[in-house]
Computed example of a mutant assay.
Amino acid sequence: MAYAQPHPRLSVVSNSSLSSVDHLSPTTSSTRFSLPSAPSLHGAASIVKAGPNRPNIYERNLNKTRGAEVSGAAFAFLFSEIVQYTQKRVSGINDLERQLNTLGYRIGTRVIELMVWRAEGSSKTPKREIKLISVLMMVHTQVWKAVFGKPADAIERSVENPDEYMIIDNDPPIERHISVPRDMSQLSCSSFTAGIVEAVLDGLSFPARVTAHNTPNPQFPNRTTILIKLEKSVLDREELLK
């Protein structure tokens, strides 16, 4: 879906303005999608031999997998198959984006559940964010890191529409290995990401309609904008909290 920057925007935060060591460190690259080195023959043999004794995946400690990496090649292949499978069962670009959004929403419900569980388990006094900006910052940083291994690049607020916010990702990991045909140039596979964001916001009681839009520029051809349009109830609650 093409998105031609319809509204003036006020920058809330961008990676260039963040001063934390975590954001300035070169290790903030997308290591979550780094390709693992090929195992040796000896290692492969030992893995096969130990197969029957490996613990059930449902018995694994969720805190021990907090920093686990996922093969970039495996993720790209799986997501490609998802897009192709869905494309064969829809009637147009809008329908395809809607289906990807629905699939992302299912992932988002699990992401927020896991993040809340880990936060409650690692802190004696866990807190829940109730302010809009704090929640958006959490999505921009913590959710993006949990899913993509890096924070988003910026978050902006619409000047004309107070109920609209935009999260900018200059190089979305899910778009890196996707080649969109010319006749489908308006397609944004980041609708999958939009579904994740929408589920997280719904889970935190900040209902919104979230969509993805291609906003490329010469420096970042895959640049994507995640547009968040909040429901009126969220803005009314923000006024009461002031």
Results as ranks from 00 to 15, higher is better:
84 Q>K: 14
84 Q>L: 14
85 Y>T: 09
85 Y>P: 10
85 Y>M: 15
86 T>I: 07
87 Q>C: 12
87 Q>E: 10
87 Q>R: 15
88 K>A: 10
88 K>G: 13
89 R>L: 06
89 R>M: 05
90 V>L: 05
90 V>P: 03
90 V>R: 03
91 S>C: 08
92 G>V: 12
92 G>R: 04
93 I>M: 15
93 I>D: 15
93 I>N: 15
93 I>W: 10
94 N>Q: 09
95 D>K: 02
95 D>P: 05
97 E>G: 15
97 E>N: 15
98 R>L: 02
98 R>H: 07
98 R>V: 01
98 R>M: 04
98 R>N: 07
99 Q>M: 13
99 Q>G: 11
99 Q>V: 15
100 L>Y: 11
100 L>G: 07
101 N>I: 01
101 N>K: 02
103 L>K: 03
103 L>E: 09
103 L>D: 08
103 L>H: 08
104 G>D: 00
104 G>P: 01
105 Y>F: 09
105 Y>S: 03
106 R>S: 03
107 I>Y: 02
107 I>C: 07
108 G>W: 01
109 T>V: 06
109 T>G: 08
110 R>C: 13
110 R>W: 06
110 R>I: 11
111 V>W: 01
112 I>R: 00
112 I>N: 00
112 I>A: 00
113 E>I: 08
114 L>I: 04
114 L>Q: 11
114 L>S: 08
114 L>C: 03
114 L>R: 09
115 M>V: 04
115 M>L: 10
115 M>G: 02
115 M>Y: 02
117 W>P: 01
117 W>G: 04
117 W>T: 05
117 W>Y: 11
117 W>E: 11
117 W>I: 03
118 R>D: 08
118 R>E: 06
118 R>S: 13
119 A>R: 01
120 E>Y: 05
120 E>F: 06
120 E>W: 01
121 G>P: 01
121 G>W: 00
121 G>H: 03
122 S>W: 00
122 S>N: 02
122 S>M: 14
122 S>E: 03
122 S>A: 09
123 S>K: 12
123 S>V: 02
123 S>Q: 07
123 S>A: 12
124 K>D: 00
125 T>M: 09
126 P>W: 03
126 P>Q: 05
127 K>E: 04
127 K>I: 06
127 K>Q: 12
128 R>C: 09
128 R>T: 00
129 E>Y: 10
129 E>N: 13
129 E>G: 07
129 E>W: 10
129 E>V: 08
130 I>T: 12
130 I>G: 02
131 K>H: 15
131 K>F: 14
132 L>G: 03
132 L>Y: 05
132 L>D: 04
132 L>M: 07
133 I>G: 06
133 I>F: 14
134 S>P: 11
134 S>V: 11
134 S>E: 13
135 V>I: 10
136 L>I: 06
137 M>H: 14
138 M>G: 10
138 M>T: 11
139 V>W: 07
140 H>Y: 09
140 H>R: 14
140 H>Q: 05
140 H>T: 05
141 T>R: 14
141 T>S: 06
141 T>G: 09
141 T>W: 06
141 T>P: 06
